[in-house]
Simulated assay, not measured.
Amino acid sequence: MSYVLLAPDKFKGSLTAAEVVHHLAAGLRQARPRVEVRGFPVADGGDGTLDAAISAGFRRVPVLATGPTGTLVRTAFARSDRVAVVELADACGQRRLRAGTASPLDASSYGAGEVIRAALDHGCREIVLGLGGSASTDGGAGLVGALGVRLLDDRGAELPLGGAALRRLHRVDLAGLHPAVRRARFVLASDVDNPLLGPAGAAAVYGPQKGATGADIAVLEAGLARWSKVVSAELGVDVAGRPGAGAAGGVGFAALAFLGARFRPGIELLLDLLGFGKLVAGAGLVVTGEGSLDAQSLHGKAPIGVAIAAGAAGVPAVAVAGQVGLGPDELRAAGIRAAYPLTDLEPDPQACLGRAAELVEEIAAVLAAEWIDPSGRPLSR
C-alpha cells in the first residue's frame, strides 16, 4: 500500500519543518490509524536547510564559527560522502543577531566562510551553500576572507569586517586562498536574481530588511561598488551584473567571482540532493506546506517546488499552511490540489502562531477524511 509523504517547510515563528512533520503525522494517524506516513522536511536554502539535510540522512559535523557581529556560534555543516551542505543563516544569518541589534554596516558573512573551510578540511569537494537569511551586506567579502583572501587598504593593512569598510578597499591578495577551493565545486541554493549594485541590488532591495537606513544604504552601495571594481580589475572577471550576484547581501557576487559557483533554485536543488525523487515514487499523496501560502510562495518557495515535483511523478499534492492567500485557480496552477489553512480552525493569525502544533494535528485530521480511506490508503482524486 502506498504511503503519505509529508514534505513541508517550516511554519516561520512557530514550528520547524521537522515539527510540522511530527504533528501532521500525529493528526493523520489519529484520524486514520492504519495510514503509513514518511517524513521529508524541506527547505529552500534559508533557515532549516541544514536540518533538512540531516533529516534526509546527512551527518552533522559541528563547527565553531563567527556570527554576523563577531560572537562565536555553534553551527555545523551536513555531510554525505564528499558533499557538504552549508546553511549561511545558521552560521551568520539574521537569526544569529540579538533581538533589536541589527548591525547593517558591520555585519559579516565571515562565519559562512569558516564553515566552508571546515568542510574543505574534512575532504568535501562539493559544497552546497544555502543563501537565505543573510544578516550582512558585505558582498561576500567576509566569506572569502575566511577562505584566505586578504582585503587590503592603500597602506597594506587588512580591512575590518562589514560592508562599510569596503569603501577603503585598495587591493585583494589571493596568495592565502585555501588550496582546496580550486579543486571543489560550489553550488548556491537561492532563488534571488538581483544584481549586486543599483536600485535592484543587494543594498537597495535587501538592506532595509537588515536594519539599514537610507544613509546606511548609500554607504553600503559605495562599499559594494568599490568591492566590485577592485575584484573585477584584479581577477579579470565582471560578475556584478549577473543574476544572483546580489543574493545574501552580495555573497552571490563573491561566490561567482572567487569560487566559480553556479546557482540553482533552492528547493529544486535540495529535493534532488536529498533524494525526494525516490521517496515520491512510492507515495500515493504528498502533503506540503509553510506558514503563509501566498503570492510570494509562487516565486520559488518550497511548497510550490514540492508540488511541482510531486506532479511530475504523478502524485497529487495538498498543502497545510497557517494562512492561505492564493485562490483555487492559483493553487491548481501551482500543482496544489487543495489547501488547508489553520485559520479555518482559528481565525486569529496570532492565536494560530501560539496554537500551531495542536491546530496542525486538527487540520491533518480534516485532510485525512478527504484524502485517505479508512483502510489508510491515499485516495486518487
Rank of each mutant, 00 (worst) to 15 (best):
D329E: 15
G223Q: 10
V115R: 00
G376C: 10
A146R: 07
A184C: 14
V280W: 02
P316I: 13
A295V: 14
D81L: 06
L188I: 11
A84I: 02
G39D: 02
K210E: 07
G132D: 06
E36Q: 15
V63L: 04
L326E: 03
D121L: 11
S375K: 12
E87H: 00
G176L: 07
L188P: 02
R262A: 15
G211E: 08
G207Y: 05
G260Q: 12
A212W: 10
R32K: 13
A245S: 13
C352E: 03
S375R: 15
G325R: 13
E268L: 12
E358H: 14
G325N: 06
A281W: 07
W227H: 12
S228P: 00
L166H: 07
A189G: 14
R242M: 11
A25T: 11
V231W: 01
P316C: 14
G277I: 07
L359T: 01
A135L: 03
A351G: 13
L159H: 06
D90M: 14
R60K: 15
G132H: 06
T16V: 04
L273Y: 04
D81R: 15
A254I: 00
G244H: 04
G266R: 08
L169H: 06
L353Y: 10
A257Y: 03
A203S: 15
L5W: 07
P341M: 08
V172E: 01
S228E: 13
G13S: 12
G260F: 10
Q323I: 08
Y206A: 09
D272P: 12
S103Q: 14
E114F: 01
V366E: 11
R264L: 15
S108P: 05
A307Q: 13
A107G: 09
R95V: 11
L353W: 07
Y3K: 07
P8T: 06
D329T: 13
R226Y: 08
L50M: 05
G67T: 09
I116H: 02
I267V: 15
V86G: 01
H23L: 11
G132N: 09
L345G: 02
G111F: 05
P347A: 06
I54W: 01
P104K: 09
D238H: 07
G250L: 02
G156S: 04
S228N: 11
R117I: 09
L72I: 03
R74T: 12
D216M: 12
L196D: 08
A339N: 06
V128Q: 04
P160L: 08
V251T: 11
T49S: 13
F77E: 00
L326T: 03
L342N: 03
P179W: 04
G70Q: 01
